[in-house]
């Protein structure tokens, strides 16, 4: 377990690459009422791996857009206006691309690294696990 904890503290990526780490971070974000940021981050990764020829991919893009971008969700509120416009434009023209959520994901990731992740490493949830 010690190795786990050292790895989780190394970077957000190493935390999220580990099943137990991602689960514990999710529990923490649920309590902080911003679990959507993590779900969005994973949804972007999942979307990037999808086949653009599959009709399902457009439906998933629409679902991500509706759930996280076009409302006042915790994700939408943290994204730059230009980033939201870009995604909205892609959706309007139905021009789906594997990288269409990359900028939005990068913005959310930076915010998670600077805020939620730092808070997590000093939280009782993490320290109790230690």
């Amino acid at each position: 377990p010690d190795l786990h904890l050292v790895r989780w503290a190394k970077s957000l990526h190493s935390l999220l690459g580990d099943q137990d780490g991602a689960h514990l971070f999710r529990t923490f974000l649920e309590r902080e009422k911003c679990v959507d940021t993590l779900d969005f981050w994973f949804a972007c990764n999942g979307f990037r791996q999808m086949d653009l020829k599959d009709t399902k991919t457009l439906r998933v893009a629409k679902a991500i857009h509706k759930r996280y971008i076009e409302n006042y969700s915790v994700v939408a509120r943290q994204l730059k206006l230009a980033t939201k416009f870009f995604i909205r434009d892609c959706m309007k023209r139905q021009q789906i691309d594997s990288t269409m959520f990359d900028q939005a994901q990068a913005e959310i990731q930076t915010l998670m690294e600077d805020n939620a992740y730092q808070m997590f490493l000093t939280s009782d949830i993490y320290l109790d696990y230690v």
Binding site: Q19, A22, D39, F42, A43, G46
Partner: peptide, 20 residues
């Protein structure tokens, strides 16, 4: 047809780390 929520959940789950 899967609902929007199911599709989204499936997409999120596909990217979650698997048990080593």
């Amino acid at each position: 047809i899967d609902s929007e929520d199911d599709l989204l959940q499936e997409c999120i789950s596909s990217a979650m780390p698997k048990k080593k």
